[in-house]
């Protein structure tokens, strides 16, 4: 078993270990050898375009599906004991169905009971969790009256009712407004840190994965194309990039022409163009060089040139320096 996600911290015993998981639907392989490990207190982003095998992987890891090959363990319990595994995991599925005619408190007490909690303990635990997710005041309201954000938070509370070692969150911010997304991501972070739980976060929103995740696994066509800590994966992808590095610079739209003119004349700039899909953004391709620090220095020089010419700079980012760039680079050509 190979572990990863080491970002300088002392390694701890993983709470989730997947070893060479494989699954096919008929002749079509959906998962081709998924291996990774997740330590407690860390958030693992699970990424991939549609059809990459994420859902299959999550369903295997949550015992809904059986793998054709390979195995996994949760908190030391092997996948050959699915009932016990289910006792140690919490899941917020992508399409979370909630009954309309019961209150949040009744709902959580019911699930507590299913995990073996006596009614009084279940109720106390439910109230604590509702407090944690900010639903304490609405504990006795019918779930049918809840907003999308409240329902997601209730789903997270449900996934924690058994005090799991690993929590799987599938697209938890889907359909939420920006404030709702921010609150929920903060909650996810808090769960991992405060409860020392390993969190697996499936999401298409790469920025949120970058914000909240410590580690990442990127799947493409059922295969792992990258895994490790977020920073390692980004650095590795940049190192592997065959095409020249570059930067993106945002200027006021009315200054775009001026900026283009100034940058075009620089010796280290290979090409510069305004991005048609993002108003005011310039894509600057830099000359390739063997010096690993040259990209950053040249980017700074381009920035200085603009500032010297009194072109206001609103934003600046290194191309290939975001998880989104890595994702696009690694899954290029795959439908998503």
């Amino acid at each position: 078993m190979r572990g990863f996600n080491l970002d300088g911290s002392t390694p701890r015993t993983p709470v989730l270990i997947a070893d060479d998981l494989r699954k096919s639907y008929g002749k079509r392989p959906a998962l081709r050898g998924l291996s990774f490990a997740l330590e407690p207190g860390r958030v693992l982003g699970f990424l991939g375009p549609n059809g990459a095998g994420k859902t299959t992987a999550i369903r295997i890891l949550t015992t809904i599906l059986e793998p054709d090959k390979g195995n996994f363990s949760v908190d030391g319990i092997g996948s050959d004991q699915p009932k016990l595994v289910r006792g140690r995991i919490g899941v917020l599925p992508e399409s979370l169905g909630l009954p309309k005619h019961v209150t949040a408190l009744e709902y959580l007490v019911f699930y507590g009971g299913l995990y073996g909690l006596p009614p009084n303990e279940s109720k106390a635990s439910a109230l604590r969790l509702l407090d944690d997710v900010g639903l304490r005041k609405r504990a006795r309201s019918l779930i049918g009256s809840y907003s999308r954000g409240m329902r997601q938070r209730l789903g997270i509370a449900r996934s924690l009712i058994n005090d799991p070692a690993v929590v799987f969150l599938d697209e938890p911010t889907l359909g939420l407004d920006p404030r709702g997304q921010q609150d929920l991501l903060a909650l996810v972070n808090r769960i991992a840190r405060d409860r020392n739980v390993g969190v697996v976060l499936c999401s298409h929103a790469l920025s949120e994965v970058e914000t909240v995740c410590d580690d990442v696994v990127i799947l493409s066509l059922g295969q792992v194309v990258a895994k490790g800590s977020v920073s390692d994966v980004i650095a590795q992808a940049r190192g592997n990039a065959k095409r020249g590095a570059g930067v993106r610079i945002q200027v006021p739209p009315e200054s775009t022409a001026d900026a283009l003119e100034r940058l075009d004349g620089l010796a280290f700039v290979k090409a510069v163009e305004a991005q048609s899909d993002r108003s005011g953004w310039l894509r600057v391709d830099l000359e390739e060089t063997q010096d690993p620090g040259a990209d950053l220095r040249n980017g700074n020089k381009a920035l200085s040139e603009l500032l010297a010419g009194s072109v206001p700079v609103m934003s600046f980012e290194t191309r290939g320096g975001r998880l989104g760039d890595v994702f696009l680079q690694l899954t290029e050509g795959v439908g998503g």
Binding site: F110, Y115, L117, S125, N162, D163, N196
Partner: peptide, 24 residues
């Protein structure tokens, strides 16, 4: 770790007092 009740094989006492799942 939070103070939520742990549900695992080591906490058989909790199971004894719990209601049967089919009833729930």
């Amino acid at each position: 770790m939070s103070d939520a009740p742990a549900i695992n094989e080591g906490k058989q006492g909790s199971y004894r007092k719990a209601r049967p799942a089919w009833w729930l």
